[in-house]
Computed example of a mutant assay.
Amino acid sequence: MENRLFYVMFCMILLLSLCSSENYFTKNVKGEGVLAKNSYVNHPPNPPIVEGPLVGLTRKAYQYNLTLIDPDNDLLIGYEIDFGDTIEGSSCCPIPSNTTLTLYHMWYNPGVYNVKARTKDGHGLWGNWSTPLTVTIMEGDTVPPVVHMLKPNKGLYLSNKRILPFPMNLVIGGITVEVEAVDEGSDVSRVEFYVQGSLKERDYTTPYSWDWYEKSLGRYVLTVKAYDFVGNQVSDEIIVWKFF
């Protein structure tokens, strides 16, 4: 009787010792009890850290940084960021935890927007949305630049020189097309030159010009387009008779 009692107490002590360690009992595919050790438990990613401007203007791109964190240090395979007007996301190549992504967004309407994000780990588990970042967007630059063709300008041009005034633009030989473009809002970003609707040149710095020296014969529509840094644009065009 004493031996049996001692045996029962010994088994109970052994069982308590096993349960208090990192080991625990589970079942194998046959349903039999087996001993498993250090079984992995996956946790969802932490809400990302979203950083960026809190005030901005419409039609202007702003940079936001998105820091992705996983408590298990798992690789992350996707993210979504809600800018309040659109949700952008990506299923991407594995990204290490604690990686910071740089994203850009442009709002087209004034208002108050809540920016938040979430991430997905390599096991397909989505984390919670981050605490919203409140962004106030005000009306921005909606006025296009002013553009004016300086050369040619109603004259007879011979080898890039204005010989005399003329009722039309008559060019013999090559000519340097010169343009004036200004913008009081976000400034001029570039000027484009077109002949018969075909883009010939982009100029990003003042003075804006293009050397038109390809051989031509006849009547042409010369168009210039000026853009500002928020996407507003304006154009000007003239008729040019060009020979050689």
Rank of each mutant, 00 (worst) to 15 (best):
N73V: 11
D74W: 00
D74G: 02
L75M: 13
L76T: 02
I77G: 00
I77V: 15
I81L: 14
G84Q: 05
T86E: 14
I87C: 08
E88S: 13
G89K: 11
S91F: 15
S91A: 11
C92T: 15
S97D: 02
S97I: 00
T99Q: 08
T102W: 03
T102Q: 10
Y104H: 12
Y104S: 12
H105I: 12
H105S: 05
Y108P: 01
Y108L: 14
N109C: 05
G111K: 04
V112D: 10
V112P: 00
V112R: 11
N114E: 15
N114C: 08
K116F: 04
K116C: 12
R118E: 06
T119D: 05
K120E: 07
G122R: 15
H123K: 12
G124P: 05
L125Y: 03
W126R: 06
S130H: 04
T131H: 09
P132A: 13
L133F: 03
T134W: 01
I137H: 01
I137Y: 04
M138C: 06
G140R: 04
D141Q: 04
T142F: 09
V143H: 05
V143G: 01
P144A: 15
P145C: 09
V146T: 14
V147S: 02
K151Y: 09
K151P: 01
K151C: 14
K154V: 07
G155L: 02
